[in-house]
Design a binder for these strands. Sequence first.
RNA 1: GCCUCUUUAGCUCAGCUGGUUAGAGCGGCGGUUUCGUAAACCGCAGGUCGGGGGUUCAAAUCCCCUGAGAGGCUCCA
Length: 652
Amino acid sequence: MIKITFPDQSVKEYNPGITGIEIARNISNSLAREVLAVSVDNELRDLTRTIDHDARIILHNFNTEEGKHAFWHSSAHLMAEALEILYPGIKFGIGPAIENGFYYDVDPGNGVIITEADLPRIEQKMYELARQGSPYKREEISKEKAIDLFGRKGDEYKLELINELEDGTITLYKHGNFTDLCRGPHLPDTSYIKAIKLLSVAGAYWRGDEKRKQLTRIYGISFPDRKMLDEHLHMLEQAKARDHRKLGKELELFMFSQKVGQGLPLWLPKGAQLREKLENFLRRIQVSYGYQPVVTPHIGQKELYVTSGHYEKYGIDSFQPIHTPAEDEEFLLKPMNCPHHCEIYKNKPHSYKDLPVRYAEFGTVYRYEQSGELHGLTRVRGFTQDDAHIFCRPDQLKEEFIKVIDIIDIVFKAFDFHDYIVQISLRDPEQKDKYIGSDENWEKSEQAIIEATHEKGLKADIVRGEAAFYGPKLDFMIRDALGRKWQLGTIQVDYNLPERFDLEYTGNDDQKHRPVMIHRAPFGSMERFIAILIEHTAGKFPLWLAPDQVVVLPVSEKYHDYAEKVLKFLNNYDIRTLIDKRNEKLGKKIRDNELKRIPYILIVGEREVSEASVSVRRQGEGDKGSMKMEEFRDRVLNEIKKQLDFVDQEYL
RNA sequence: GCCUCUUUAGCUCAGCUGGUUAGAGCGGCGGUUUCGUAAACCGCAGGUCGGGGGUUCAAAUCCCCUGAGAGGCUCCA
């Protein structure tokens, strides 16, 4: 007998050779019906594999990452089987489970193109095959045999993968007439897959290398029952409704013009107002954290960027240099603000006593992003960073990091961003020569970042090899409505620019020393931040930020004068107010202004005029009853105060 | 940049396999109505169908080039 230990520490005895599914069945039939994969001593395995020795096991259903993973991976194989039937001779790249579903990269060969129009047909075939309930069979195979097998199929992609594997670790999975190179694990059989939706077709370079062949990637998702699929599709619909590109247009925040150019956003009055609010919010915080505003031009001489090294990185693939008419000097649109700030630092000598020096600028930069990369406001070619550069002594690094983390903390709290990812990017210890700066400095700064995040209680993922060549960094990432990850806030240590610009300060030893530089941007860029903010709020901005805070609706033309009075009164308190004087019925005006996401709607008619009151509706909540004008003013001012009070209370 | 798809009025979209003056709703404008908590009624004006070229007796519709957008791939705020 072998001892099987469960997650709750209970132990049961079984005969050796028992399988995961049999154990599940032994516990209960309902468990057996929903379990999809099993971890045996932390190794994720098929339910149908035998267990021969004492082990700790975890049974995974669809509610766990592991369960979903097996489910979607098996679905990818099912799709591959369907594809092989529908497109004879098709070759396969990789077909993994992903965060939401699965994909398979395929090469249909001889000029065949798979488009979205073909997906229903493939889907149908998958349903047909799923119903057959073919078991997924695992087989261990020697490298030689694997090469022989896929060589005969002529599948060069699989051969390439096999060649990189070690003999003795290669496994195949077979179901129906389809065999794939695969590590597994898989579901017991295809009948588990009850609901399938193929979502999109996209080009994907083989192994992510743009110099290699582009394969066709088919994305799909599947579920153990139809209802879950419907829910998922419904959720996707909902997410689309929050898309900042759609809302940006509807709420008149920003636009793009074919004539102005790709990736160059135009901010409409309401969007500009929102943006200005955000900037002022951060400006105020930065003043109290000891930042000094600076302003620098949008272009700089080529030499500046040769010194900074940006010419090498951005020079060729970026907007082409601007040439002056008489002298034919070259100027570049700035891709970053730091070179300008370095020059400002050099404007006067610095003592160790003066450090850190913190220069802040909402600096607009231009980068020639590949056209296929542009995406709404989240990736554009001209954007404004809430940039600042901190010049400090090496011993001040950690403290400065903590202060910057504080600012990012304020920002994320103010906008209710809870679900963000913090990533520490360190250098690759195997390839130290890829990076600039001394070993000692790297050690120190990496340590400083790790300690700073630790002290601030941030749960950060440490990723080695992701650092910039000039220093380690700490990034804050957040997801958009459709779950795509975007980097917002960033803090980066830089040893490179101080070196290149020969920056120095005089130490207490009367010697010249090199300061360390920190690049930081809590929002990241105004464009991207606002994009994410729109998606997170679905356009219902917090009151203090809403471009229009209050709209007054006169019940009829007779009350326009009174509406004007209300407007004037509120404007005196800096409450941004409009009047909807259109010749429409009240219900219509309410509807339209609700859809514009204006936080407060005030209705004024006979009653309000006689009482010097307003009838209040809060966006999304409906009627709040009537109150005196002064009472409403206090309500608004209090709500705003409450939203921002924590900044003064906890940080300033 | 590459792959696939999309592009018709200010917005959202219809226009089947090429066939008479290209449609609808919303929005805009004019009028009627002066109205009490999510869409009053009537009328009018908006489009060289993203741009250019071609095939055809005939092109929004087919072909080629090109712009822009979407979903991805590599890169990045």
